[in-house]
C-alpha cells in the first residue's frame, strides 16, 4: 500500500467513529462556555489540550469552583491512560524524526489509537505512520469544528438552562462502557461513594481521595480475582 492509500485507509476507518465525536465535541464546547469560560479561551483549550474527557473534567471542576491544582491534577489523572497507548504504539513510530514524533504524540486519542493498532496487527501492507496520520487528522479537524460549533451555540444559551448538567450525563455514557468487569464496577462504586461522602473536605481532598481509593479498590479486586502465580504456570 502506498503512503497515500494508507493515509486514506486511516481516514476511511475513522469515519464511522466521527459520529460519536461530533456530539461529544459539541457538548464540550457548549458546557465550556456555560461554566463561564470565555469563547477564545475555550477554543484555546480545545486546541492545546485536545483530550475531550479531561476537558469536560476541567469544565465541571471550574464550574464547581475547585482549586486550580486539583483541576489540573484530576484532568491529568484522567489522561494517564495515554501512557499505555503511547507504549503500545511506540514501536510503529520508531522510524519518525523527533518533530514528527511530537506531532504524532499530540494527535494521540482513544479512537485513533484503537483503530490503528487493530489495523497494524491485521494488515502488514499498510504503512502505519500514514494510516495513523489519516485517521488522526480527520478526527482532529472534526473535534475542533464541532467544539467551535458548541462554543458558538453555547454562548447563545442562557446559563439558567443548566446545560452544565450535560457533563455528568456524558460521563455516565462513558462510564457504563467501561463497567464490563467486576473490578471496574468496584472501582467506580468506591470512587463515587468516597468522593461523595468526603465532598466537603477542604482543598477538594474528597475528590482526590475518591479517585485514589477507587483505583486501589479496582486493583485490589483485580488481584483478588486472579489465580495465584503457581497455578498460572502449571
Amino acid at each position: 500500500m502506498t503512503r497515500r492509500e494508507s493515509f486514506w485507509a486511516g481516514a476511511r476507518d475513522i469515519t464511522p467513529i466521527l459520529m460519536g465525536i461530533m456530539p461529544f465535541g459539541m457538548i464540550s464546547g457548549i458546557t465550556a462556555v456555560n461554566v463561564g469560560i470565555g469563547q477564545g479561551m475555550a477554543m484555546l483549550m480545545s486546541v492545546l489540550v485536545f483530550a475531550g474527557a479531561s476537558q469536560l473534567v476541567a469544565y465541571q471542576l471550574i464550574g464547581s469552583g475547585a482549586i486550580s491544582f486539583v483541576i489540573v491534577y484530576t484532568a491529568l489523572v484522567v489522561n494517564l491512560r495515554f501512557v499505555v497507548y503511547s507504549a503500545s504504539i511506540a514501536p510503529y513510530f520508531k522510524p519518525l524524526s523527533t518533530p514528527w514524533k511530537w506531532l504524532y504524540a499530540y494527535l494521540l486519542t482513544d479512537q485513533g489509537y484503537a483503530i490503528s493498532l487493530i489495523r497494524f496487527r491485521e494488515d502488514e501492507s499498510v504503512r502505519p505512520t500514514w494510516y495513523y496520520l489519516g485517521a488522526s487528522v480527520l478526527l482532529w479537524v472534526t473535534w475542533q469544528v464541532f467544539s467551535a460549533l458548541g462554543i458558538f451555540l453555547g454562548s447563545a444559551v442562557p446559563a439558567h438552562w443548566g446545560l452544565d448538567f450535560a457533563i455528568p450525563l456524558t460521563f455516565m455514557a462513558v462510564l457504563v462502557k467501561a463497567l464490563d468487569n467486576r473490578p471496574a464496577i468496584i472501582a467506580a462504586l468506591i470512587g463515587g461513594l468516597v468522593a461523595t461522602v468526603a465532598y466537603n473536605l477542604p482543598m477538594n481532598l474528597g475528590l482526590i481521595a475518591g479517585v485514589l481509593s477507587g483505583i486501589l479498590a479496582g486493583y485490589w479486586a483485580d488481584s483478588a480475582g486472579r489465580p495465584r502465580r503457581r497455578e498460572d504456570a502449571s
Binding site: 471542576l61 511506540a90 455516565m172 462510564l175 472501582a187 468516597v194 479517585v211 477507587g214 483505583i215 479498590a217
Partner: peptide
C-alpha cells in the same frame, strides 16, 4: 521506545477511568 509499561502499572491504570469518572459524576 524500547520499554514496556510494567504489568502492575498497567493493571492499576486500567481502573483509573472508572474511579475518576465516577468520583466526578456522583458528587455532581
Amino acid at each position: 521506545a524500547d520499554r514496556e509499561v510494567p504489568p502492575v502499572l498497567q493493571r492499576i491504570l486500567r481502573y483509573v477511568p472508572s474511579a475518576a469518572v465516577s468520583a466526578i459524576i456522583l458528587p455532581a
